[in-house]
Design a protein around this nucleic acid. Structure first.
Lengths: 258, 258
DNA sequence: CGATGGCTTGAGGGTATTCAAGTGACGTGG
DNA sequence: CCACGTCACTTGAATACCCTCAAGCCATCG
């Protein structure tokens, strides 16, 4: 249920090199030389937070940011009527709370653990210092942010144009171990209700849309377990309509101005 | 129709200080000392592009990025069936094409002018060089990106929870000159069809939703001209439902999440 | 063994989409 | 100058899709 990387196990053991292994997991530190990563070693703290734990709330003064080594955290806004608006779901390799750096050290959204996480927490001021004093660190930060944002952009824009079953299909494909084109088995990362929220749909709608997917693509979902015999079928269901919408419908010539 | 800042007029005149004035308009250069901005002066080129001009296509090798001084550019993906998926709309102060820096110098989306723009184009390699060699430049870049992304996140997440008329209301409020609380008059920035696309709705739906807005908030739209007598009315229509749980506004109360 | 929470399923209703026709503004060419 | 086509926009009717409310199922847990 909880994704504990082996490297993280070593990290919590408290050895000197432990953090280094854990830190290298983060995209933020991907291309950095060990020497730079090591500068975070002394101030880094490995911890485990249980499902439900609130890392911070919108508006809080920000002291730490977190590197996720496993599990899931949701970022969200709380509206005046108490409803939540989910902004992002983060997992292994992602950063949490780092954006406060550019927002006057205030968190601009709330963060809560939704599946037990293992994290490394680091004071924001250290990150700030390193970014201000190390070129490579600043560049690394830039590319990490840029990459994450680009992905997120794509997902959101795509989701806006898809039906509920397609959005779910998309979500599943992102989780798919993409080694084989044959049969695939994996687990849903968190509650179906939460997946529904993430995808911007109702719990009830999610359930129905899932049935539609079962019908159209032959996948099986029992509890949190997902089995897909023919991944291509799912891919075609999700992206097919966009590739073959109107092959014979020459009526509606799409706009072109260039 | 076209937004030509006075500072830009000076820029195209070719004076030494001209670019500097134009560049300072960009959020990217907001807090930078003149000395740093000046390093871009020699390589910067002020230009005007007409509606319809394609700045680049997805996958193109990226040579330049652009600082927008006025007008509008849309970022989009082209799907296999020829449909477009709009990712972002950019205007005065925004950067276009800079993200290729972190994507192997390839553009990850296409960019097209939708309302005549005045831009300053700068070789990406220069930006790359400055970021790699100047602390403040790297930091500036980070905060510019971070700011833009946070705004964009909020908009998209919010839009996902709103009805068509509310989304339009939101869009209009963003354009509203926020000085007075009295009567407000301004112009729509670009085609209604394009606004509809941006907001993820049908052209027909946009038209109908607009009528609903007229009815509920008393605003007037003739052609591209918008008149709002009581802005508060619009604000309440857009954000009211979220602030007041369900005060038996049973008619237009919209989707929520747990 | 009830209670809770996650999930499913049914019925009903509302909103947005599609298809389609029609209007008006604009530019072009006769 | 006007006929004409194009394009943006509006409007109507029928439909698809998703939401809400509500009941029922099943597992977990005290």
């Amino acid at each position: 249920m909880v994704l504990l990387a082996a490297s993280f196990e070593r990290a919590v053991s408290g050895q000197q090199a432990g953090h280094l292994a854990a830190l290298r997991n983060a995209r933020l530190f991907f291309d950095l030389p060990d020497a730079e990563i090591f500068r975070f070693n002394d101030v880094a703290q490995a911890r485990i937070y249980k499902k439900g734990k609130v890392l911070y709330l919108e508006g809080d003064a920000a002291e730490y940011f977190y590197i996720l080594c496993g599990g899931w955290v949701k970022l969200f806004h709380t509206m005046a009527n108490g409803d939540e608006m989910i902004v992002d779901m983060l997992t292994k390799g992602d950063l949490v709370g780092e954006s406060a750096l550019f927002e006057k050290d205030r968190h601009t959204s709330s963060a809560q653990v939704v599946e037990d996480v293992s994290v490394v927490s680091i004071p924001l001021r250290v990150l700030k210092d390193r970014i201000a004093n190390s070129q490579t660190m600043a560049l690394s930060m830039l590319s990490a942010l840029s990459l994450h944002h680009r992905r997120h952009y794509g997902e959101m824009a795509l989701n806006a144009t898809q039906s509920a079953p397609q959005r779910i299909g998309c979500f599943l494909l992102r989780l798919c171990p993409r080694d084989k084109t044959k049969k695939v088995v994996f687990q849903l990362p968190y509650d179906k209700t939460l997946i529904a929220d993430t995808l911007g749909m109702n719990g009830a709608t999610f359930s129905r849309a899932l049935n539609m997917l079962r019908l159209k693509t032959g996948l099986r979902i029992k509890g949190t377990s997902v089995e897909i015999d023919v991944v291509d079928k799912l891919i075609k269901f999700v992206y097919g309509p966009m590739a073959t919408k109107d092959l014979r419908d020459n009526k509606t010539e799409r706009r072109r101005k260039a």
